[in-house]
Design a protein around this nucleic acid. Structure first.
Lengths: 249, 249
DNA sequence: CGCAGCCTTGACCATTATCAACGCTGGTGG
DNA sequence: CCACCAGCGTTGATAATGGTCAAGGCTGCG
């Protein structure tokens, strides 16, 4: 399992997580399902790391020795083709979890989009805990279930949606995922570059840039700054995202 | 969770599954992790169904009342956009499992590609069993982990690979998944139509047809019949699939 | 044998990629 | 404090991959 994002229901937990970077393992959103003694054991296992923007958290092919819980910042999970083509398979935020893997090596890379802090657990010890705590395993399965549904949505986006529809979907989904900013309605923080958005949506930077300009021209969004925008017409944007761009015209 | 394919390690289990369609729940590949009494309980819960080609097993939006274990045939899992665009997110075969879902309704559809037989379990009873059997939950998490890794691979395919690379990847992956045919090396059974392949790979039928013809012309494959082909040059096909098409030229 | 459905092939088109130039912006050092 | 520079973003012109439209062929079944 590559990465597990926190569940929508866990929104409070997520926010909490982002606020308690000092308390290490307790920041782990799954903690809600654990008893106090288990939490203490997790705490004891955890390393706290801070990594600068651009730094690598996980390298594709490396032995899978750790699992991670993100406590602040934004992480990109990605895969590369030998010639350098890149697919970003997800952006992770505070409260999200990553690193579980079926084999002994990671099959993906993870890098900091902005300065990131994480709790790092030895994989074997974490596995041990999982075996002993069905509640933990249950929570992870719950998350994995959710993550698989999200993956199907990303597949229809990549396989069947137009560039406009992809951007619209992205802009609507992103704020739900990022607890870093209080959810001012319509306000979207874009910690990632155009290039990262492009590699997430299966497009090029030029197309991303052009489509954002077009959405702006159509009055659907306003570009506040390079890394911040406003959704002006959520309804029409949603219709676009769902492939009903013409219904509302 | 939409669908869980059997693990590669479970190849023997899978084959067994496809051979014992008569024994119902015991065909469920996860059974390997359950004790005999649990198996008997599963057996008691299961309906055995046979559905004709083209029939619907799960409709998007329907209340999620069952989970399914496929005992023979091929199932397509898909999502639709309102205007009819279709993305097939996976093909399932004997031994695969589907239907777990985070919400109360299915968020995808499942339809028989060819005549299919399944074991159907009431979702609530299955959940109950999961709660009582950590081994079952563990097995499902294991599978989900694997399925998530596969989803990442499909994302790089859909987001970054060319039509040729997509077809090459598909032809190489498919036989590993389908236990219906003894794994004659290089022999690929294609139970699905060109249209289904296209909707799985994010292409059109015409492109699928043209690329298959091109692969044939290049001596990489031979089209034995409409639903059967031979891989003549696995190495070059693999190189193509991995985006190293030029390396071997 | 005939028909329906699927597949293939061809001609043309559109969306998006590629290539190129330029502009903005934020950080650094004079 | 300002000027410069590097990196990122935007915009434009052109190209290419794959989509669309159309016609015809195969195949398997009644």
């Amino acid at each position: 399992m590559l990465a597990l994002r926190s569940l929508p229901a866990g929104c409070a937990a997520r926010r909490e997580a982002s606020e308690c970077t000092a308390c290490g393992a307790r920041a782990f959103a799954v903690c809600r399902t654990l008893d106090a003694p288990d939490l203490d054991r997790l705490d004891a296992l955890a390393d706290r790391l801070t990594v600068p923007a651009g730094a690598s958290l996980i390298r594709d092919g490396d032995p899978a020795r750790h699992v991670f819980s993100i406590t602040s910042g934004c992480v990109r999970v990605l895969k590369l083709l030998p010639d350098g083509r890149r697919q970003i398979t997800g952006f992770l935020f505070a409260g999200d979890f990553m690193g579980l893997s079926s084999g002994d090596a990671y099959v993906f890379a993870a890098e900091a989009v902005e300065p990131v802090s994480v709790c790092r657990f030895p994989r074997t010890a974490f596995r041990e805990m999982m075996r002993e705590s069905p509640a933990l395993e249950h929570a992870l399965l719950e998350r994995a279930t959710h993550e698989l549904a999200a993956a199907q949505n990303q597949m229809i986006l990549l396989g069947r949606k137009t560039a406009q529809e992809r951007l619209a979907s992205f802009l609507l989904d992103l704020p739900d995922r990022d607890p870093a900013r209080p959810p001012v309605p319509g306000h979207v923080r874009l910690p990632m570059t155009r290039s990262e958005i492009a590699d997430y949506l299966g497009l090029t930077i030029e197309t991303v840039s052009r489509v954002l300009t077009k959405l702006k021209t159509q009055g659907l969004i306003r570009l506040v700054s390079m890394h911040e925008l406003l959704i002006l017409d959520p309804e029409r944007l949603r219709a676009l995202a769902d492939g009903m761009g013409d219904r509302l015209d």
